[in-house]
Simulated assay, not measured.
Amino acid sequence: MTHSDILIIGGGIAGMSAAFFLAKAGKSVTVLEREDQPGYHSTGRSAALYSETYGPKIIRKMSTASRSFLITPPDGFTENPILSPRGIIMTAAPGEEAKLDAILTEGRANGANVIALTPDELKARIPVINTDLIIGAAHEPDAMDMDVHALHWGFIRQFKSQGGTLITKADVSSITKTDGKWHVTLGNGQTHSGDIIVNAAGAWVDDIATKAGVKPLGIIPKRRTAVMVDVPADVNAHGWPLVANMDETLYFKEDAGRLLVSPADTTPTEPHDVQPEELDIAITIDRLMTATSIEVRRPGESWAGLRSFFKDGDPVSDFDPADNSFYWLAGQGGYGIQTAPAMGEYAASIICGNGIPDHMQKLGVTKDALSASRSSLTTGK
C-alpha cells in the first residue's frame, strides 16, 4: 500500500490541474486514472475555446481568472502556445436583449474586449449568416482557440516533475475509510491510501461517491455532438471567429478550411464511451442550414463527448457537506478546459486551508458559488 496526502480520482483536465497546484503547494499527490491515457472521455474530445463572455456567470469569472496562466504559463510548461487567435461572436434573437446586454456589460467589467454588433455588421463579418431572426451580437475578438493537449499534458508533466504520481489503468473497485484514512482498492488488487480524496472522475463522480459511502450530488452526464461540414467553394471562411447563438443550441467555427459544427446538445445519458447518434447529426445539420445559407448534402466525420452537469448548471469545487476529507471537483459542463487553471488553483487553495486566492476574490468569486451544499443543487433552480 502506498500513502499520499491526497488521492485524486480522475486524470482529466480537472484532476490534473488540481494535482499540479497541490503538488506545487508541497502535498504528496497520487492521481488514479481508469483509462490507458488520461483525458480519454471528455478532455480529449473538446474543441475548446477560451472566452470570457461564454457560459454561466461563475464560469466567466473563472475564465477571466485563468487568463494570465493561459497566456503566460510557467517556464517549461509547454513548447507550444496554449492560446491562438480566433474570436467569438454570440448572436441574440428577439427577446434576448437582456442576455446580450449582460454579456456586453459583465464582459467589459471583467476587462474583456467585447464589441456590440448590429445585424448588418454581423453579416459583413459572416456573410453566410441569416440575420432575419437576429437583433444583435456580441463580438469578443480576443477569444482564443485552445491547444487542449498542450494544456493537459503541461499539467501532467509539471505535476510529475514535482514528485506527483499518475497511475493509469486504475479502475477503482472499492473505497473504504479506516482511522481517518481513505483506502482505494483498484481492480488489479492494488491499494492506495490518502488523507483526502478529490473526486474528479467526470461523468463517474457519483459512482465514486457511492463507492466511498458518500451521498451523490446528482451529476448528470450529457452527450455533446460535433460534425465536420464542407464549406461551399465560393465561401472563404478563413479567419472567421467561432459563431454561437445566445441560447447555446448551435455553434460553428472554421477548422482547416471546413466547419466544425455542434448543436451544443446536452442529452442525458449513462457514463460510458459515448458515440454520436444519427438524430443528433441530423439536428446539427438542420440548425446550421437554418442559421446560415450553407447547404449540406453530406456531413463529414462526427464524434461525441461527455459533459457533466449539476442541476443548476454550475460546477462544484468543495468538500462534501458530510465529510471534510472528500472533495468534489466536478460538473464543469463543457467549460472545464478554459477554466482549468483557476479551478485547479481554487481547489488546491481550499484543500490546503488557504481560502479563495486573492485575484479570484477581486473578481467576485465566492465559496457559495461553487459550494457542494448550495440550495440549487437540491432544488434544481
Rank of each mutant, 00 (worst) to 15 (best):
L7S: 05
S28T: 15
V31F: 01
Y40W: 13
G44R: 12
R45H: 10
A48L: 11
T64F: 05
I71P: 00
P73Q: 14
P81Y: 01
I82E: 03
R86L: 14
E96Q: 15
L104T: 05
L104V: 07
R108G: 09
A109H: 04
L122T: 11
R125N: 05
I126G: 04
P127G: 10
P127T: 05
V128W: 01
E140I: 00
H152W: 01
K160Y: 01
K160R: 15
T168P: 04
D171I: 04
I175L: 07
T178H: 05
S193W: 00
A201T: 06
A209I: 07
A212N: 12
V214G: 02
P216L: 05
R223F: 06
H238K: 15
N245P: 01
D247I: 11
T249Q: 09
Y251R: 09
F252T: 03
K253L: 14
A264L: 14
D273P: 01
L279G: 00
L279V: 10
R287G: 00
T292M: 09
V296S: 07
G300T: 10
S302L: 00
L306E: 04
R307K: 10
K311T: 12
P315F: 15
F319G: 00
Y327Q: 02
Q338I: 08
G344I: 06
D358V: 11
K362Y: 03
